[in-house]
Design a binder for these strands. Structure first.
Lengths: 351, 351
DNA sequence: TGCAATTATGAAATGGTTTTCAAGACAGCT
DNA sequence: AGCTGTCTTGAAAACCATTTCATAATTGCA
């Protein structure tokens, strides 16, 4: 028996996973090109330590057989895995809550930037809510670093994470003492722009729609307050948030309106929320800009076509994805990158 | 010298990747718990072949040190990697084009469903446009299967892929002869619902907004035509698509309107596109539902708050993510799953 | 021609886990 | 006591690619 097996000579015994697919290994390519595995490896990694002739032969064989290097074996071998974990704040997009497609535009940018650098993008599962789960995920996958899109109410966890020497970049509020690297837009400035818009329109009773437990939204609220200073008799109201983070619904707005004298200015945390505001106000017979001013956030395309067209704060995010990735890479390479704040501007439309 | 090294006894020589992190291996846990690696492995995988006492000791050590199994090593060892690649049609969300957040809701569902099954989600890079690139990516990552969200204009590629024995599930148009497993909603039915809405409102000059090179959209268009049969003198126009797939913009609609007698009914491929239509029509002094009927698609939350509130086709997608994953898993396990078509219904609102 | 320096290549070790196989411990039985 | 069978454990191989080190081949030079 034992003899038979020895005589069978190598390749026969390999149990291949799926039918047909016949996953090729570097070994196979080496054999076919009549070289050793290291040589194949060198060719595929563009090492100069290889004859032009050998290189071509190997490349030819590899191409002909559609060989692709096994990334998992690579990842195992190297300390660096070329894998980046991305955490997405899905919270805002489940259960009919009002979320903007904004985060996903960010994701698109990140995906593209990572792809350019040949990095794999591993999307983290929902529910990575504590440091432990987060770190375990990171370790187990051997990700080089983490990009968190949407700081949400996780500021505390992220701060704790900062001490765990996991390369980490967060899209969200940028603060000096965060202990982690944040990239985000100037939320304070954005809030102030909204406030100035209200001042210019002589509005006096302002409403902020958004959950200020979110650091980003808190800053926008602070910006709003800043703009109110120096103007007499401005009151700023906060929409009472009943439930979970970011889950402002049209009903929340409507039920708020039922109880109070209506505001004459509303600053909503997202354009989508602004749309809900317009709907709820209309039911009360309140029309913008006649009865109130309204400023949204993010400048998503439909805002321009909405009736009335929504005045909004535009975050320059076309470069955001690339910037997030760049900052992460710096960190992975051992640098300590400085946070970046992108400018915001107001897009004045009808409201 | 050699003696010194031998005497140093094992752990010292390991070059650890990043400072502090001190990545633990199963070996370390084994040593600390005074057992062998296989035993640790067995414990961690819940094998019954281990004493209760040993199990507890190992678990204790593992927990105390925050050990997490190296997934990359696991992936290398197994034929099955527990990794699913997901391809997202970002096309619709770049460069200011009008895309719906719809795809992302799907992504959220898929992410959640995969997480429940403890599968990793690898987001594929943009630009996997041909069979070769697609297959190479799949192979190199050792993904067990592929989920494609948004068939787009890739039907042909996907069909070719069907022959490559890659487990594959596509969200999109469901057809009998596709050769790959599709999950999607009843686009034909959705189109017919829109058409019936127009018939009921005695509209005669219909416009379809959407690029029918997309299989899904073509089916909706076919459904629309079906509804037109049996009604006299209905004409259906197609919005001429200038540029890339799905990139209908407000300008496209406006320039179309400039050249023709305006339609009295519009069926838009997405709610977001419907919003653009409303904007463009308003500029021509055309108001829904006074001057035309309008039906959108996807029933995204803002549609309800839009002015006028948009009549739309609702796809029951709360289960879609789970369904996509389920179908993929069946396929990975060797079954040949049947395509699934989810029902659609019309949500009648003001338009 | 002989020697050193350079270049191209391969053998073996490595990374962390799982699996197979064999061995050891121990209980139950005659 | 001796045997069989069950239960728990560990040694070694395997997964696939990369890296180090050593060897073979070639060139340059005296």
């Amino acid at each position: 028996m034992a003899y038979q097996m020895e005589m069978s000579g190598g390749t026969i015994n390999k149990p291949r996973g799926r039918s047909g697919g016949a996953r090729l290994t570097m070994q196979d390519i080496a054999r076919l090109a009549d070289v050793s595995t290291p040589t194949v490896s060198r060719v595929l990694n563009g090492s100069p330590l290889v004859t032009e002739e050998t290189r071509e032969r190997v490349l030819e064989v590899a191409r002909a057989h559609g060989y692709a290097v096994n990334r998992n074996a690579q990842k195992l071998r190297h300390a660096r895995t070329n894998t980046v974990a991305v955490m997405l704040d899905f919270g805002s997009h489940r259960h009919g809550a009002i979320g903007d497609p904004f985060i996903f535009e960010l994701l698109a940018g990140v995906s593209e930037a990572l792809s350019v650098r040949n990095q794999d993008l591993l999307l983290s599962p929902p529910g990575l809510d504590d440091v432990r789960a987060f770190r375990d995920f990171h370790r187990a996958r051997g990700a080089d670093g983490f990009i968190v899109l949407g700081q949400g109410t996780r500021d505390e966890m992220l701060r704790a994470l900062g001490k765990h020497d996991i390369p980490l970049v967060v899209w969200g509020a940028v603060s000096q003492d965060a202990g982690y690297c944040a990239v985000g837009s100037d939320n304070l400035g954005g809030g102030r722009l909204a406030g100035e818009h209200f001042v210019a329109n002589r509005r006096r009773r302002w409403l902020f729609v958004g959950d200020i437990r979110h650091e980003e939204l808190r800053l926008r609220y602070e910006g709003l307050k800043l703009a109110a200073q120096g103007v007499r008799n401005v009151t700023i109201d906060l929409l009472p948030i009943a439930s979970m983070a970011f889950t402002v619904t049209a009903e929340t707005v409507a039920s708020y309106l039922a109880g109070v004298a209506p505001p004459d200015a509303v600053f909503a945390f997202s354009d989508t929320a602004a749309m809900a505001v317009i709907g709820a106000f209309r039911e009360r017979g309140l029309i913008a800009p006649r009865d109130y001013s309204l400023v949204g956030y993010n400048n998503i395309p439909p805002s321009a076509h909405f009736h009335p067209a929504i005045t909004t704060i535009d975050q320059k995010t076309d470069v955001a994805g690339a910037l997030l990735v760049e900052k992460l890479m710096e960190q992975i390479d051992g640098e300590r990158p400085v946070p970046v704040m992108l400018p915001t501007r107001m897009v004045k439309r009808e409201t």
